[in-house]
């Protein structure tokens, strides 16, 4: 009987295993140690690994993320938690100017093996300042990698790979998913003894031949629900493609799906203007134009800052019915 664990536990296991795997891995963030993590992702790690490896930082994102970048130039591998990815904006200079460009400006003499991780999602009624989904913004910057897992299995396999990667990886999670459970095998059930998922490989989360629903992060779950509904109510079978990593991007899996189904919908919580879906739609029309039977369409958040009012926020971000309707408009 395969075990099920939460997305939160999966991340916790991944972090724990990487702390064991490499002495240079150090976790830094607000409330990550003694408080056990604002969202309990790092629960128990400070108890197990102590002050040197799991460090409570003051509320000083530019300071401690910049510090982590500097330390990484000397070979430390900091994994830094943002309590919300929305707070990246106070560390924006460090994350964009320093982490992303130091390698280039030094002509390749330096690299920056850091991970910055934390939740980037709406839907929890915390207002506009706490609901940003900046994966498109960071993925726009060459030198950075952006990852956004949708399940516990992916969260564990991807966080481990992100920590071992020698480039800066910005790892965007979801508070909505933290408590949800998925099957994640024990290490002794896995070839090679541990779960490592490469960046740049998308995952086909559901197979169908009529339509491609493409998504990343929490929107993958929305797309899966929409796909079930499309199948049961409309007899439409959708592929659901989960990017898992946005940059590097697995274009092949997307294109293979679209060439099979001839129809594509991108689903994401990003705002529409230059969202991840805009990049994917551009790529599909350029590389699979002759296969398309309909325009590529997108389901995104409504184009306003995140609203607080709970019933309204529910309809401001993508929900299954909206995806179903968008899909029906091109089927």
């Amino acid at each position: 009987m395969p075990r099920s664990i939460t997305y939160r536990q999966a991340l916790n296991e991944g972090l724990d295993e990487e702390l064991a795997h490499d002495d240079n891995v150090v976790i830094i963030g607000e409330e990550v140690a003694e408080y056990n993590g604002a969202y309990k992702v790092t629960e128990g790690l400070w108890n197990k690994w102590g002050d040197k490896r799991v460090i409570d930082a003051p509320i000083s994102e530019a300071g401690f993320i910049g510090m982590g970048i500097g330390a990484s130039m000397l070979g430390v591998r900091p994994v830094m938690e943002l309590m919300f990815f929305s707070f990246a904006y106070v560390a924006f200079d460090q994350m964009m100017n320093n982490a992303a460009t130091v390698r280039y400006m030094s002509g390749g003499l330096i690299h920056v093996p850091i991970v910055v991780r934390g939740p980037a999602n709406g839907g929890t009624n915390v207002g506009a300042t706490h609901s940003h989904t900046p994966e498109n913004i960071f993925a726009n910057m060459p030198g950075l990698k952006v990852v956004s897992p949708a399940t516990a299995y992916d969260a564990k396999g991807l966080i481990k790979t992100a920590i071992r990667d020698n480039d800066p990886v910005y790892f965007m999670e979801s508070t909505v998913l933290y408590g949800q459970e998925w099957e994640v095998p024990e290490n002794d059930e896995i070839d090679g003894g541990e779960l490592l998922i490469p960046l740049g490989v998308a995952d086909v989360k559901r197979e169908g031949s009529d339509l491609s629903l493409i998504a990343h992060g929490g929107s993958v779950i929305t797309a899966l629900k929409a796909a079930d509904h499309l199948a049961s109510e409309h007899g439409i079978e959708a592929d659901v493609i989960d990017l898992r990593s946005i940059r590097p991007l697995d274009e092949t899996t997307i294109l293979d799906s679209v060439k099979k189904t001839n129809r594509a919908v991108y689903v994401e919580e990003n705002k529409p203007f230059c969202g991840v879906g805009a990049q994917i739609a551009s790529m599909i029309q350029e590389k699979a134009f002759d296969y398309l039977d309909a325009p590529v369409v997108r389901v995104t958040s409504m184009d306003s800052p995140a609203i607080y009012s709970p019933p309204l926020e529910e309809i401001q971000i993508p929900y299954p019915e909206l995806v179903v309707n968008k899909a029906l408009s091109i089927c």
Binding site: N24, V26, K52, A62, G63, F64, I65, G66, M67, G68, I69, G70, A71, S72, M73, L74, G75, V76, D93, Q94, N97, N98
Partner: peptide, 21 residues
Amino acid sequence: HGIVGGQTPLGAGLAFGLKYK
């Protein structure tokens, strides 16, 4: 470093790296 003050957390980080090692 071209951003005024942007190098100052990196300086702390180099010191952190020395101490860590």
